[in-house]
């Protein structure tokens, strides 16, 4: 195996990892505040991809505008889902919210099939993104460069938001002790809505990037990336935002590298590798790579 082959796969792994990271962050944000595993998060990714497509095709707007529009629309849908499905369950047990999120996921997927038709649609990206660069036999497309850099930019913005802004500090306070945060005058509903908006916006970007890479979208496209991003969040330590980003890259890289390095006969087991990695990480670090185990109050 040559060095270029390895490097090529590294780049592909980082690209896939960027997408997982963007989605995993949303999982971790809502989990950290509400202890809610939002299985509908992957379907928000789908909504983001479709709204991006419609903005591009129907309004003939450029890619950046469709990205922005899709982020805003997905953020709105995320807040709506929280308002309708999760807020009434605030204070109930984790099992109830988990089942509800599965129900929301199935609802959105079937609504998508009814309204958008189950047929996949083509998702054409602007010409300049399909351009390939070849350096020392390594091929990298503008699309890949866009995915990697967009993920980094969004994560930097998010880091600034969480560390430096008033809402970001409130979010961190809530994730640690939601009742103490209320006593400080923090409006929990606003913080939760904000977490859903931010997470959904990032998922929308991931959706458009996935759609751009595969060139097509369909109503069930969010399921597998949603599941993998959830696994990435658990690998990184669910509830930790840096952990989610790290878990996304670890998962993306190992998925691509394992397929590339193992004999071709094993490549069909790609998704099984994901779970093997998850099991291995949890065996040695039950709280995930960057997570902390919280004592449960009994």
């Amino acid at each position: 195996m040559s060095g270029t082959y390895l490097l090529q796969n590294l780049i592909d792994g980082i690209s896939l990892g960027s997408i997982y990271a963007l989605v995993a962050i949303g999982f971790s944000m809502t989990y950290s505040i509400l202890r809610l595993i939002n299985f509908a998060h992957g379907d928000i990714l789908m909504i983001g991809a479709y709204s991006g497509l419609f903005i591009m095709v129907a309004w003939q707007l450029p890619l950046w505008a469709s990205l922005l529009g899709a982020m805003i629309f997905a953020a709105f849908v995320g807040m709506l889902v929280e308002r309708i499905a999760y807020r009434p369950l605030r204070g109930s047990n984790e099992e109830a919210t988990l089942i509800t999120s599965l129900a929301v996921s199935i609802f959105i997927e079937n609504l998508g099939i009814m309204v958008l038709s189950p047929q996949p649609r083509g998702f054409a990206i602007p010409k300049f993104l399909t351009k390939l660069h070849t350096i020392n036999e390594i091929t990298i497309s503008n699309m890949t460069i866009l995915i990697i850099s967009l993920a980094i930019i969004l994560m930097l913005v998010l880091t600034y938001f969480v560390i430096c802004t008033r809402m970001g500090v409130a979010m961190r306070a809530c994730s640690e002790n939601i009742n103490a945060a209320r006593l400080m005058g923090v409006n929990i509903n606003k913080v939760v809505a904000c977490a859903f908006a931010v997470g959904s916006g990032m998922a929308a970007v991931a959706g458009i990037m996935l759609a751009g890479q595969y060139g097509r979208i369909e109503p069930l496209m969010g399921f597998v990336p949603g599941l993998k991003a959830f696994i990435a969040a658990v690998i990184g330590g669910i509830g930790s935002i840096p952990g989610a980003a790290l878990g996304g890259y670890v998962l993306g890289l190992s998925e691509i590298l394992l397929v590339a390095l193992l004999p071709a006969a094993y490549s069909g087991y790609r998704d099984a590798f994901v779970f093997i990695i998850l099991i291995l990480v949890l065996l040695f670090k039950p709280a995930g790579l960057l997570g902390t185990l919280e004592g449960r109050k009994v």
Partner: peptide
């Protein structure tokens, strides 16, 4: 609860409940 805080009532809870991952200054500012 948050509107009651705005009215000028502060509740210092049992068991301290400081935000342990936030800095001392961040705790005071929140």
């Amino acid at each position: 609860a948050h509107k009651i805080v705005a009215m000028g009532l502060a509740h210092c809870p049992e068991g301290r409940q400081v935000f342990s991952r936030l800095s001392v200054l961040e705790n005071l500012k929140i």
